[in-house]
Write a protein that binds this DNA or RNA. Structure first.
Length: 214
DNA sequence: ATCCCGAGGG
DNA sequence: CCCTCTGGAT
């Protein structure tokens, strides 16, 4: 595998990508954090449906903590796992108040110590809200990395490290977002559509999938 | 039936 | 590594 395969792959995606969706709607650290917590095992459309009212009611950690799980619940009842998420978001807001001066910490360990926040969510916040050099590896990016030869047979953490190391600096910010969209709409788990993949020339997986329908 | 831009726990 | 949580869309 050529050393710059990942860079070529990412450049191809960057050159042919639509406007970013979900998390770029929330550049503010707190609303971004909450939105990403809510999106676990939920569609981005479902999350984007309920967040406007939620953030209108509680745009800050202080307001969210005051709202509490009982106040948050009704706003998010249409997305899966809402009960646990309501508790997590309330506790998370309270923890921001008590331990971080009402601010979202720009620190991985502190982020991952928040209820409902794992490595993937922390990476999204660090990248999108704070511009840190991180990559958020979700199921799509994990599959894509293992399938394409970018990081075959690697763990999610190894895929993440590879991407952070090989991604051109100017693409680091939000590159994970293009990868996610690519994994969702093109390099899909089933019936991937290699014939419309802009990075197919950098990928050896296309030989394994059917030709385009006619 | 299966998946969703996961996290927490055993 | 496995399992569970859990509503909605396809």
């Amino acid at each position: 595998m050529p050393r710059d395969q990942a860079a070529a792959f990412l450049r191809a995606l960057a050159g042919a990508n639509p406007a970013p969706e979900t998390e770029l709607l929330y550049r503010d650290p707190f609303t971004l954090l909450v939105a990403v917590v809510l999106s676990a095992q939920a569609t981005d459309a479902a999350v984007n449906r309920c967040t406007p009212a939620l953030f209108a009611a509680a745009p800050t950690p202080a307001a969210m903590a005051a709202l509490g799980a009982e106040g948050i619940g009704p706003h998010i009842r249409r997305i899966g796992l809402w009960q646990g998420k309501a508790r997590n978001v309330a506790a998370l807001a309270q923890q921001l108040m008590e331990q971080h001066g009402g601010e979202v910490p720009r620190d991985r360990a502190a982020l991952e110590a928040l209820p409902g926040v794992g490595r993937k969510t922390a990476n999204v916040v660090l990248n999108v809200a704070f511009g840190e050099a991180t990559m958020a590896v979700d199921t799509h990016i994990f599959r894509l990395g293992n399938r394409t030869g970018l990081a075959p047979g690697k763990t999610p953490r190894e895929v993440e490290d590879m991407l952070v190391r090989r991604c051109p600096p100017e693409l680091l910010r939000d590159a994970h977002h293009w990868l996610i969209l690519h994994g969702r709409y093109v390099c899909k788990a089933r019936a991937p559509e290699c014939w419309r993949c802009v990075a197919a020339t950098q990928c050896n997986y296309r030989d394994k999938v059917p030709a385009p329908p006619r």
